[in-house]
Simulated assay, not measured.
Amino acid sequence: MIRIEVSPQDIAASRFAISPLIETVHATWVLEGRVSAGALQAWAARWREPYRRLGRPGLALIQAISGHRGSGNVDFVAPPPTGVNVPFDRELAALRATPLDRAHEEIAQLTVPRELRAALEGPHVVRLIADALEAVWREIVSPEWPRFHAVMERDVVWRAGRLATSGWAAALDDLSAQVRWRDGGLDCDLSSDFVKRDLNGRGLLFMPSVFGSRVGVYLDDAWPYALVYPARGVGATQAGGGARLEALMRLMGRTRARVLAELATPATTTQLAAVMGQALGTVGEHVAALRGTGLITGARAGRGVVYSRTPLGDALVTGELTP
């Protein structure tokens, strides 16, 4: 159990971030078959063979030192980002600048396969890992990054709103069964040992992930303390079950039904267009039609309008009418 103590100062200092580099690492776990692809089964099936053809030696090193629950990981491979729109190239540059001594020190804490130890302890380990992640990003992740980013951005908007208006308990309620708010702090069921950390006013960095199927934490004092969690809405188009969604598509048309399903997580028209791969004008027409029939509603947020389903829209998608 990991216990993270939170003060009022930490609540004010906490923030959200999206990391294309960390998502690229997570993508390798999915493509290696180490974690479930979940709602991204079709994406994984499409990209597994191109991933294998990359043939980068650093890919095996990444798998050896990251994503091992309970047995330790390194932090230098994917340091927590500083904002929602940090470019991949900036994060990659930070990885490439990792001092070799630090990389070796972190790797030395792990038990790694004997056949990889020479490369992991060698002088080129940072470059090999960075080159491999750059190849995965350029060839595989970046083509669909606008859609993935829109999903995570929607999660940030929704969860930050809950955090501001209803507090941490409400914002974290559906994050994961492994994380719960209790007695002014976070209990994370991620370790068999009891570990306690105090944020000491630095706040917590929340990072949604489209590839991550489980919660993870960064507790290295060299970086901001961070919580990585599965983003809402990755499988929104599966809402209500496949058969029900297909019936909804026959009733109102495929695109309009998809818009309604996607709005299980509130979104702007621009975000919907990115997630669905549709023209902004086309999505806007469907949003207007759904709003006109009372299935969705819009609320202004800054310069944009965030749309969400009404109880009637929820009932149409889920088949359950909430009083």
Rank of each mutant, 00 (worst) to 15 (best):
residue 27 A to L: 14
residue 156 V to H: 06
residue 254 R to V: 15
residue 89 D to Y: 02
residue 59 L to R: 06
residue 233 G to T: 04
residue 230 P to I: 06
residue 217 V to W: 00
residue 182 R to V: 12
residue 117 R to L: 12
residue 97 A to N: 10
residue 208 P to T: 09
residue 289 A to C: 03
residue 279 A to N: 14
residue 121 E to V: 00
residue 34 R to S: 09
residue 295 L to T: 04
residue 146 P to I: 09
residue 13 A to Y: 01
residue 202 R to G: 07
residue 27 A to F: 05
residue 18 I to A: 05
residue 275 V to N: 00
residue 147 R to N: 07
residue 228 V to Y: 11
residue 60 A to T: 02
residue 216 G to M: 11
residue 264 A to M: 08
residue 295 L to K: 08
residue 166 S to R: 15
residue 311 P to F: 00
residue 314 D to G: 01
residue 82 T to Q: 12
residue 70 G to N: 06
residue 176 S to F: 02
residue 310 T to W: 10
residue 303 R to I: 06
residue 82 T to S: 15
residue 56 R to M: 15
residue 319 G to D: 05
residue 278 Q to P: 00
residue 94 A to S: 14
residue 231 A to E: 05
residue 116 L to Q: 10
residue 247 A to G: 10
residue 40 L to S: 05
residue 30 V to R: 03
residue 75 D to S: 13
residue 281 G to E: 12
residue 197 R to E: 10
residue 127 R to L: 11
residue 137 W to C: 03
residue 121 E to S: 13
residue 57 P to K: 11
residue 10 D to K: 00
residue 178 Q to N: 13
residue 225 Y to C: 08
residue 283 V to I: 15
residue 181 W to L: 02
residue 214 R to F: 04
residue 181 W to I: 02
residue 251 L to M: 09
residue 46 R to L: 11
residue 241 G to E: 07
residue 24 T to P: 03
residue 190 L to W: 05
residue 91 E to W: 01
residue 249 M to F: 00
residue 264 A to K: 11
residue 250 R to V: 09
residue 205 L to H: 06
residue 289 A to K: 12
residue 292 G to Y: 05
residue 227 L to Q: 04
residue 110 L to A: 10
residue 286 H to Q: 13
residue 270 T to G: 15
residue 134 E to G: 05
residue 278 Q to I: 11
residue 61 L to Q: 06
residue 27 A to S: 14
